[in-house]
């Protein structure tokens, strides 16, 4: 397997009130092509800082990010990044938001509108193409953001607690859709969460982080897919993973 995304001795600090705040220190991670990696950690462990640098939004203080072996210098459409906060353009309708990446690439009105229409349909927002973001619920906005990210055909998806603010049913539906998408496209996913259940359900591999991005646990999740955490045949092993991750998170908090 080839490494799609690599962090090499990645460090990031921020200046705040004349003090340097270390968010990430000598962080190393290699993500293999086609894998589903879940980064598990409490808030403030440097997860989002890492994703920001992986996406090319911010520059590391030291160390580097490699994307397909090349140093990552700035954002590109090959990497899709779903940030924690909403970032739909409030002055654009759902369809105009979704088609924006194609618009920036210079693709014609007709083609991008057609493609956007299909993606909107796929995320279940048909009939809301002409609504503005403020007219949608939080879950619908999330789905519109997802469609906007996917329209660019990214090879690598970075997802920062993408379903955190949604209700349980919707979260499950979107998790299923994400898995389907991943299975059928061979894209690579780095998924950040603080939810242990979500990590077990989705991951090939879970990386548990303590503060400043210290890796507490890096472990494969060897459960066959599709996974149903409630299923009796799986329950024992799920419980073992749950226990292991809980202990790791506890250790991370104590450190």
């Amino acid at each position: 397997m080839t490494v799609v995304l690599a962090a090499e001795a990645l460090s990031k600090r921020f200046l705040k009130d004349e003090r340097y705040l270390v968010a990430l220190e000598e962080f190393n991670l290699a993500v293999e092509g086609g894998s589903f990696v879940v980064i598990l950690g409490r808030s403030g462990c440097g997860k989002s800082t890492f994703l920001n640098m992986a996406a090319g939004l911010t520059k590391p203080t030291s160390g580097r990010v490699l994307f397909n072996g090349q140093p990552k210098l700035g954002p590109s459409q090959e990497i899709g990044y779903l940030t924690q906060s909403d970032s739909l353009m409030p002055w654009r309708t759902v369809r105009r938001n979704v088609e924006m990446p194609l618009e920036l690439r210079g693709i014609g009105r007709k083609e991008r509108s057609l493609t956007a229409g299909r993606l909107i349909d796929r995320v279940g927002l048909s009939g809301f193409e002409h609504h503005y973001p403020r007219e949608l619920s939080g879950g619908m906005r999330r789905r519109a953001s997802l469609a906007r990210m996917l329209i660019a055909d990214p090879q690598l998806l970075l997802l920062d607690e993408p379903f955190g603010a949604l209700d349980a049913q919707l979260r499950q539906a979107l998790q299923r859709q994400l898995l389907e998408l991943w299975k059928s496209t061979g894209s690579t996913i780095v998924f950040v969460t603080h939810d242990i259940e979500e990590a077990i359900l989705l991951a090939d591999r879970v990386v548990v982080l303590a503060s400043r991005g210290r890796v507490v646990l890096d472990r494969m999740v060897e459960l066959e897919r599709p996974r149903d955490l409630e299923q009796p045949a799986m329950a024992v092993r799920v419980a073992e993973y749950r226990h292991e991750l809980t202990v790791a998170l506890r250790e991370a908090a104590a450190a």
Partner: peptide, 21 residues
């Protein structure tokens, strides 16, 4: 274009998300 093809493919699985629209 694999992702887009998947996302725009036939509706082989009625999306559960649509139910909450």
């Amino acid at each position: 274009t694999a992702i887009r093809n998947f996302m725009t493919g036939s509706k082989h699985s009625p999306s559960a998300a649509a139910a909450s629209t």
